[in-house]
């Protein structure tokens, strides 16, 4: 419960309206805005304390979390028609998965080369075996780069794509058109995206691992920082198959987070084209944050 005391009823009401605006719009700036009535800022300065802001933030986060889970419960229902779902699923596999192979090859290749060069340049002591360059490249690619960095890159590429697509459909009333037809629009539009990326992401991650490690080898062949045979020895050294399982589990969870968070922001976009742009930005920011938070949680759960 939040109480507002003021000698003037009007001022209390203004403050509450201001708070409501913050909850609705999510702009903390509005309560410290120069445009806010000076008298309110003066009389109720203490009310604009850190605690109040924190309270409003908490409310907003809880509201959004609740809305997100309601959205997810709408998404995970039985599709209207299996045949239509399968068609959309294949389309999304192509668009989200196959359409991302180019960027994955480029980024993974360069990352593999850079990790190899950086590790080789750091390990110049005779006491440290050269094959550790291959070992480090392999472990970096498998444990962190391929699943996590790739997810962050895809949250930019796919997240903005999904949010702007759904946002445009929302503001141009295409989602309303689906609802009026009696179709569960969240299920029809979002479920194929989530399932498609969740099923293709592990393959993309494996591809990324392979490309990164391969380009590390190419660097050894061309730049001669270590011998290719040392590199080969390194990538075979102390291999634990569970690392691959761990990476694939992470990749699948990240795929769910990227598609569901982006879809949520796109689906609930409202107003104009400007709002579609904003929802697209939010989709990228929040899906990236979700990926980083869950990366920590999964790592602690599976590796410790």
């Amino acid at each position: 419960m939040f109480f507002v005391f003021s000698p003037n009823v009007g001022q209390s009401q203004s403050f509450l309206i201001d708070l409501q605006e913050v909850i609705n719009v999510g702009q903390i700036n509005s309560i410290t805005n120069k445009n806010a009535p000076n008298v309110i800022l003066g009389l109720t300065k203490q009310m604009y304390s850190y605690a109040s802001i924190k309270f409003v933030f908490m409310l907003k986060i809880l509201h959004q979390l609740g809305e997100y889970f309601i959205f997810i419960s709408k998404v995970f229902r039985r599709p209207e028609k299996g045949k239509v779902f399968r068609e959309l699923y294949v389309q999304e596999l192509w668009k989200l998965g196959v359409g991302s192979i180019g960027i994955i090859v480029i980024i993974s290749g360069f990352m593999g080369m850079v990790i190899t060069i950086q590790t080789a340049s750091q390990i110049n002591s005779g006491w440290i075996p050269a094959y550790l360059v291959g070992y480090t490249t392999r472990q970096s690619m498998i444990l962190e780069f391929s699943p996590t960095m790739l997810a962050l890159i895809l949250s930019g590429k796919i997240g903005s794509n999904i949010a702007s697509e759904l946002g445009t459909m929302r503001v141009s009333e295409q989602i309303d058109a689906l609802e009026i037809m009696g179709i569960n629009s969240a299920n029809y539009l979002v479920l194929p995206k989530i399932t498609a990326l969740m099923s293709i992401m592990p393959f993309l991650v494996i591809l990324s691992m392979f490309i990164g490690i391969f380009f590390g080898y190419v660097i050894c062949e061309t730049v001669e920082i270590i011998t290719p045979s040392d590199y080969i020895t390194g990538i075979q050294y102390d291999f634990r198959p569970f690392d691959i399982v761990y990476a694939l589990i992470k990749a699948t969870i990240f795929a769910f987070l990227i598609t569901s968070v982006s879809s949520y922001y796109g689906y609930y976009a409202s107003g104009s084209a400007l709002e579609v742009g904003r929802s697209s930005t939010k989709a990228v920011v929040y899906s990236s944050i979700a990926v980083l938070v869950f990366n920590y949680i999964i790592t602690q759960m599976l590796l410790i």
Partner: peptide, 27 residues
């Protein structure tokens, strides 16, 4: 129910044929 929206609300990733076929295909 059939609904004609003010801005038509045609699915812009579908052709005219696919738009009209959509309710038939679904129901």
């Amino acid at each position: 129910i059939g609904f004609l929206f003010q801005g038509s609300a045609l699915f812009d990733y579908m052709t005219v044929e696919e738009n009209i076929l959509f309710p038939i295909k679904m129901f």
